[in-house]
């Protein structure tokens, strides 16, 4: 069981990291801090507005692939990958 517990802990750590980024780009940059960020510009976009309507979505895509890539590696490191891959 120890092997499974350390795997689960590593998973939770990775998840916490990803969800923090998820929170920062959407709720923090897109909503809470939108006004101060709007003082900066990205081309014709106000920066806060850009995060709310574009940037957060791009980050979400990267996050999901990053999580999936790291988890597949974690699976192998802890020897819990699916049977057909062993």
């Amino acid at each position: 069981m120890d092997k499974h517990q350390s795997y689960w802990k590593a998973n939770l750590r990775l998840m916490a990291l990803c969800l923090s980024i998820w929170f920062v780009v959407s709720f923090l940059f897109g909503i809470i801090l939108v006004e101060p960020l709007n003082n900066f510009h990205l081309g014709g976009y106000k920066l806060g507005f850009w995060f709310a309507q574009q940037g957060s979505i791009y980050t979400f895509v990267v996050l999901v692939f990053f999580y999936s890539y790291r988890m597949n590696k974690l699976d192998k490191e802890h020897g819990v990958q699916e049977d057909e891959e062993k």
């Binding site: 998840m15 990803c18 969800l19 998820w22 959407s26 897109g30 909503i31 939108v34 507005f49 709310a52 309507q53 957060s56 979505i57 979400f60 996050l63 999901v64 999580y67 999936s68």
Partner: peptide, 21 residues
């Protein structure tokens, strides 16, 4: 306008939760 962002973030951000949780 900007207020419509709730739909953009809400209907995509859910997939992050779905993928991880």
């Amino acid at each position: 306008g900007y207020g419509g962002s709730v739909f953009l973030m809400g209907w995509t951000g859910g997939y992050v939760l779905l993928a991880m949780l």
